[in-house]
Design a protein around this nucleic acid. Structure first.
Lengths: 216, 216, 216, 216
DNA sequence: TATGAATGAGCATTCATTCAT
DNA sequence: AATGAATGAATGCTCATTCAT
């Protein structure tokens, strides 16, 4: 039997260990995630997983939340450094979203899970916490990016995130695309995700908030 | 036993009937779609479904393809009428995508299915046919919208579609959002999907292709 | 794949085969009955069991119903032979209830299952069919046993069955009783089930319907 | 942490509290009895339950034993008042068995649990203690009811108890019976439990021990 | 072509019980 | 004695798919 987590800090650590294990397994094969495997990888018994999470879906949501929290933390840190520009935002997005391997595939999944797959209270709890962070970030962007209002800050992030998420679904690298190398009709529409995203995201921001904001 | 479909036109009709039945059932409850129910609703036996589709997923993909084809048909029809502007594109997008009830939820699902859920050949076939249509549409937009190249036409559509799809996932109406009416943190980020989409989409297009294209 | 049961008679046969298999396994170890084992013993796949029964509990109820039907059939056959007496009833009860190995243990279980364990409609269906048979039997006993009314015939059977069932639960042979051979306090109350039942049942019938009915 | 029970009397009290809690929860929903809920209702932690009972089943058996003990205590008290008749026995049976809400349902369950569900030693211990009480009661009935032997007293009780228990299983009030109000075949056999029991029990006693015993 | 009986893979979750503290 | 974190056994059922008729 694994050392008991009596202290809250020990419990938190065990929770993180479970998330780490689940993330690694999910990345390896998203359709093959098994609770038993998560438990074993974290060095506990199956039932123990359910002391920390109410369901498999809740685990995935928790990983997503950790991803999102890390992004917002990076954003806040960026804000504390001084002014934010479209370019620094772009760097942030790429470093803490686009290039975090599981971020976007998991995000895609989680938006579906929240509708059906977890108890509404769980989904609402997650939305609440993300909402808080997003609200704060909106204020930050107003001041650091020179937007007209916190609402514009929120719009900046939401519209951008929507574009990232949707474009990822259409253009993310995948074995399927490799198989289509010889199909001209597919080549026609096969673009590099990061290149397209960078171009479209910049266009969206410029189009919505003006070219001046990005370059003081 | 239902009348046998000998003629190709009869087969096509039966195929459409099956898609109609599946679409209605999927809309009613996406997680409850059962092949047997589809068969019954279309007036055939379970096994017959598999004479027309190789799997459940293939059915969903076929419905999606029908949605997409209808959009491209409308776009082509729009082009035949004369010039296209950002505004007419916006109308097209809303009429044949955003407001077709199952279009976006099904599209969200299908982008996942293509990666795993159907045989690669099926997915590639779909991508091929969509690629062809997208290529044609790119040419159409070059001439009718005044873009610099067919590639820009493709980019116009893909970037726009990415934004639509991603924003829908974040902001689409849902019971969950209704439940959150009293949570200020969630209200903070709860925007009207269509309003936001219209604003962001226009910004994206303007930012990427210039304000002049939309208004000759 | 096992020969398909297309005809209704084939389906009925398969249903009986499944019940036979389940009964044998249940008798061998009541707490160890597994659907998969039933399927294997009947030579079909697991899923096939569910084409014939909606749940494990429904199988047990169906076996019980078969037991009960056999008893009523024997009773009817007895009635067709001529007069029925307490003694012939006693013989019937012993031959088709008490000494049918699984009858009483399964009956004990099923009365509990009907309350919770199966869908009410299933339980009501069973009760309905047994009610019909019991009603007919009441009429039979009125004429053949010389009771005052069909209702008395029903009471005769129900009160008797209650006594049989309850006494079986207290006194049926079991390993536990063998273990108690050296405990005088238990010996005190350890009686032979069949002896006690015969005595009590006769007393009940005589007490309720008079000594004359049994001996014309 | 709850006050430790050092004194034997404190331990006994805690044991009773646990039984009270378990009984209340079992009555509310027999299939939903959870050890954790029992512990909480009794104001102790889960593990503490296992300091007083070796298993969940043992708790149910202990409640049943308390029921039985109360019945025998009432019987003894009745004997101390003077002569016992069939009518006073009937009153006793109704007051301390039939109308004690959980007595018969729990008894039904416990006769099954004793065969498998608890350690044989536990079951034998219970049987032993009940056997002792039953032996005493047999003597009591010999003298107070005027039976020929203590064995007849035991038979009087056992046969009666069997009838009560079995008839209860067939005829006890239940939601299922309420649902069957409109089914004539079921109405046919749907009798009032208490009426039938009173009639059958009296018949059994009279048939077995003569009409004179009950009415001196 | 159409049917529908047969197949069998797939697996999260509960909760009684234990035992380190 | 009391606690409550950890354990892990235990398994029925659905439903997409196949294929004999």
């Amino acid at each position: 039997m694994k050392q008991r987590a009596i202290q809250q800090s020990d419990k938190d650590q065990r929770r993180q260990d479970l998330l780490d294990a689940a993330l690694a397994l999910w990345q390896a094969d998203p359709n093959r995630l098994r609770i038993e495997a998560v438990a074993k990888a974290a060095g506990v018994a199956k039932g123990t997983v359910y002391l920390y999470f109410r369901s498999k879906e809740e685990i995935l949501l928790a990983i997503h939340e950790r991803h999102v929290a890390a992004f917002f933390a990076a954003l806040r840190a960026g804000g504390e450094q001084g002014t934010i520009t479209f370019e620094t935002m772009m760097d942030l997005v790429f470093a803490h979203m686009v290039r975090v391997p599981a971020f976007l595939p998991l995000a895609s999944l989680c938006h579906g899970l929240m509708e059906s797959g977890v108890e509404p209270e769980i989904a609402l709890g997650l939305k609440h916490r993300i909402g808080e962070r997003l609200g704060e970030a909106g204020h930050l962007l107003q001041s650091r990016l020179g937007l007209d209002s916190p609402e514009n800050g929120v719009a900046f992030l939401m519209h951008g995130y929507g574009l990232i998420l949707g474009l990822w679904q259409i253009l993310h690298p995948s074995p399927l695309r490799d198989m289509a190398k010889n199909d001209p009709a597919i080549q026609n529409i096969d673009r590099d995700f990061e290149t397209e995203l960078r171009q479209a995201l910049r266009a969206l921001w410029v189009g919505e908030f003006g070219p001046t904001k990005g370059a003081p």
